[in-house]
Amino acid sequence: MTSKTLLLSLLLITTSRLLSGAGATSFSCSGDDRCHSLIGYIPPKPTTIAALQSLFQINPRRSLLTANSLPISTPPSFSLPSHSPIRIPIPCLCSNATGLSNHRPIYTVRTHDNLNAIARRIFNGFVTIREIADANNISDPDRIEVGRRLWIPLPCSCDEVDGKPVVHYGHVAAEGSDLESIAEEFGTTERVLMRVNGIQDPTSLQAGQILDIPLPVCSSSINTDALDSRLLLPNGSYTLTANNCIFCSCSSSTWQLDCHATQGMSKSTCPVAKCGNLLIGNTSTTSCGVSSCSYSGYINNNANNFTILTNLTTPTTCNRNEKVPLNINMLIMITIIDANNV
Rank of each mutant, 00 (worst) to 15 (best):
S3W: 09
L6R: 14
L8C: 09
L12G: 01
I13M: 12
I13A: 14
T14V: 11
R17G: 13
R17F: 15
L18E: 14
S20F: 14
S20R: 13
A24N: 05
S28K: 09
S28A: 12
S30A: 12
H36G: 13
H36S: 13
I39M: 05
Y41Q: 08
P44A: 08
K45E: 15
P46G: 09
Q53I: 09
S54F: 06
S54W: 01
F56G: 01
R62M: 08
L65P: 00
L65H: 01
A67D: 03
N68R: 04
T74V: 08
P85I: 10
I88A: 03
P89F: 06
C94I: 07
A97D: 15
A97Y: 10
G99M: 07
Y107I: 08
T111C: 00
D113E: 10
N114K: 03
N116Y: 15
I122Q: 09
G125M: 07
F126H: 07
V127Y: 04
A133L: 03
A135H: 00
N137L: 11
N137P: 00
D142K: 08
I144H: 03
I144N: 04
E145D: 15
L150A: 03
W151Y: 10
I152F: 04
I152W: 03
G163M: 03
P165K: 11
V166W: 03
A174L: 12
D178A: 10
T188E: 10
E190V: 06
L193T: 02
M194L: 12
M194W: 06
Q200D: 15
P202M: 07
T203N: 13
T203Y: 11
Q206F: 06
P214M: 09
L215N: 02
C218I: 06
S220T: 08
T224Q: 14
T224W: 10
A226I: 01
A226L: 02
A226H: 01
L227H: 08
L232T: 02
L232M: 03
L240Y: 13
T241K: 04
N243C: 04
I246G: 04
S251W: 01
S253K: 13
S253N: 13
Q256V: 07
Q256L: 14
L257V: 02
H260A: 13
A261H: 06
Q263M: 09
Q263S: 15
S266W: 00
P271W: 04
A273Y: 00
K274R: 15
C275P: 06
N277I: 09
L278W: 04
L278I: 13
T283D: 09
C288H: 02
I299E: 14
N304M: 12
L309S: 01
T310R: 02
P315D: 12
T317I: 12
T317F: 12
N319R: 05
I328M: 11
N329M: 13
I337G: 05
V342S: 13
